[in-house]
Simulated assay, not measured.
Amino acid sequence: MSKRIVKVYPFFERLWHWLQMALIVILMLTGFSLNGQLGLVPFGPAVVFHTLAAGLLLMLWIFATFWLFTTGTWKQFIPRIEGMIETARFYALGIFKGEKHPYRKVYFRKHNPLQAATYFVLKWFIFPAIWISGLFYLTYALWEGGENAGFWIVVVANIHVLAAYVVACFVVAHVYLLTVGHGFRHHVQPMVTGYEEVDLTTEQEAYLEANEPNRLKPRGVPAE
């Protein structure tokens, strides 16, 4: 293995990340205003902006899902047991003692075991729960005459709010972890430039140099 500065985050992945972040912030502000937790946005505009942001985010997820499967990037989000305990221990204790992160980032796996497991749950369970319940909520006028509709709208609303709180907790934890270790700038920079230092095998390095040299920074050149 050799360490090289490699473009591991293509343009679409970075665009997807930042658009998703902006839309989730809008949804949180308007959603909590609708729920009575915040009073930052009046009810009427909150409904409009919440619905618009939700629609845009849903379209973004559809495109992102297509991209994940067509590029094979979905494999990055498959959790694995190996290294899970060591990584969890690092975030729970080692990070406060200045220990070195137990996970070595490699070219073919950008996320550590804990990240992969978290993203897996979010992308395949929490996010679908939000948009499915949101669609049922938005189309309530079409099924409000059904049997026990009053009961089911309460169930839908609670699922939607619970999933939203899970996402809010993830956002808080995500931002917090960006501030520890090497610092906020170090963690955010790869999602801006696309470049990050990873371990490459001799074969991977030779392949990139021969076929995708634009993805490799020359040795000694920083990621910026």
Rank of each mutant, 00 (worst) to 15 (best):
E147T: 15
A141K: 08
V106P: 00
T202S: 14
E203I: 07
F77L: 10
P218H: 14
W131Q: 02
K217S: 04
V25G: 00
F77P: 01
E212T: 04
W18H: 09
N112V: 04
L19H: 03
L23P: 00
L29Q: 04
W18N: 09
N112E: 06
T202Y: 12
V41H: 07
K3I: 14
P128F: 10
M1D: 11
V188M: 07
K97C: 08
A117I: 01
F90I: 06
G94E: 09
P213L: 14
K100R: 14
Y176D: 11
S33Q: 05
V180Y: 02
F11A: 15
Y207Q: 08
W16Y: 13
F63P: 01
K110N: 11
I153R: 02
W74R: 03
R4F: 11
Q115I: 02
P102G: 12
V47I: 15
V180T: 14
E82Q: 15
N158P: 02
A206P: 01
F96G: 06
E205Q: 14
G220I: 09
R4L: 09
F151D: 05
Q204C: 04
I132T: 10
P222G: 14
T139M: 05
V154P: 02
V161L: 13
Y91I: 05
A168M: 10
I130C: 02
F90S: 06
V8I: 14
F12N: 12
R89I: 09
M1T: 10
F136P: 10
M28T: 08
H160V: 03
N214H: 15
F96T: 11
G150Q: 02
V188K: 01
I130H: 01
F151C: 02
L162H: 01
A210R: 11
Y107S: 02
L15I: 13
E86D: 12
R215L: 15
R89A: 14
A210P: 00
V221H: 05
L57S: 03
V221W: 03
F170E: 03
V41T: 08
F43M: 15
N112F: 01
W18D: 09
M191Q: 04
I81W: 10
V171K: 00
A53C: 10
F90G: 05
F120E: 07
P128A: 08
Y165H: 07
R14Y: 04
I81E: 08
F11K: 09
Y103P: 00
V221P: 00
L177F: 08
V156E: 04
E144H: 13
I159A: 07
K123N: 13
K110T: 09
G39H: 14
T179P: 02
G150R: 03
